[in-house]
């Protein structure tokens, strides 16, 4: 039997000090990796060429994808936090893969030409007052988790951009928590032309984490 496995990349080059400014991989990161691992057969069938991670942080997810999907994909990562961009760069390098990194806001620096075959996003999803979403540059880590009202402010800005970013057969994976109102997220996505399903969930220390997989309505799976 072929083994469909995603290996967690080595992060030994990152230290406690780096995690002052960069989100340290946590349960949400690993749940996303687990969801991708469960879907690896599907991903390999789809043969993505262009992968994009928004909010790559330490780079753990992008690097894992790049390593698993190999030489037939090009991985791009975007993060609003400069320190996270360097960390992503470094994690990719340390694990022997190439990822191009852009310091930017969501997918706004990208041409909207429906080119992305695999998009992943572990967004800041924690409900917080609005002001915490737009924190000063001195507190880049706040931006890693502060999601504003219902934890939805950052992800809600990405959704309307999906139709011009995702390829016709593209897949989008996103982490959320129950408090983000997952059924309502699915309605928003549906209105934009995407079907979505909860493909993974886990309860960790009072957080009910889910991973949504989303694709165009016109795209039937398998």
């Amino acid at each position: 039997m072929p083994s469909f496995k995603i290996e967690t990349p080595s992060l030994s080059h990152l230290s406690h000090e780096d995690y002052i400014n960069v989100y340290e991989p946590a349960e949400d990161s690993f749940l996303l990796l687990d969801a991708l691992e469960d879907d690896l057969e599907l991903l390999q069938q789809r043969r993505p060429v262009l992968c994009l991670e928004v909010g790559s942080g330490s780079g753990v997810v992008t690097t894992a994808i790049a390593r698993t999907l190999g030489a037939e994909v090009f991985c791009l990562a975007i993060d609003i936090n400069q320190a996270a961009c360097s960390a992503t760069n470094c994690t990719a390098k340390e694990n022997g893969v190439k990822v191009d990194v852009i310091n930017g806001d969501l997918v706004t620096p990208l041409r909207g030409v429906c080119a992305v075959d695999l998009l992943v996003f572990n967004p800041p999803y924690v409900p917080t007052p609005h002001c915490e979403v737009i924190t000063s540059l001195e507190e880049p880590l706040t931006r890693a988790w502060a999601g504003g009202e219902r934890g939805r402010e950052v992800m809600d800005r990405l959704f309307p951009l999906l139709p011009e970013v995702l390829a016709p057969q593209g897949l989008f994976y996103m982490v959320a928590i129950e408090n983000n109102d997952v059924p309502q997220i699915r309605e928003v996505l549906s209105a934009l032309g995407f079907q979505s399903h909860v493909v993974k969930q886990r309860r960790v220390r009072g957080e009910h984490l889910v991973v949504l997989r989303c694709q165009k309505h016109s795209d039937s799976l398998e």
Partner: peptide, 23 residues
């Protein structure tokens, strides 16, 4: 933050995807 690894650079493939249309 100083990283101990050599940097990775921007490819022309990435340049091909970038725009300033949001300005």
């Amino acid at each position: 933050m100083v990283f101990r690894c050599a940097v990775h650079n921007m490819k022309l493939l990435t340049h091909n995807m970038l725009t300033s249309k949001c300005m």
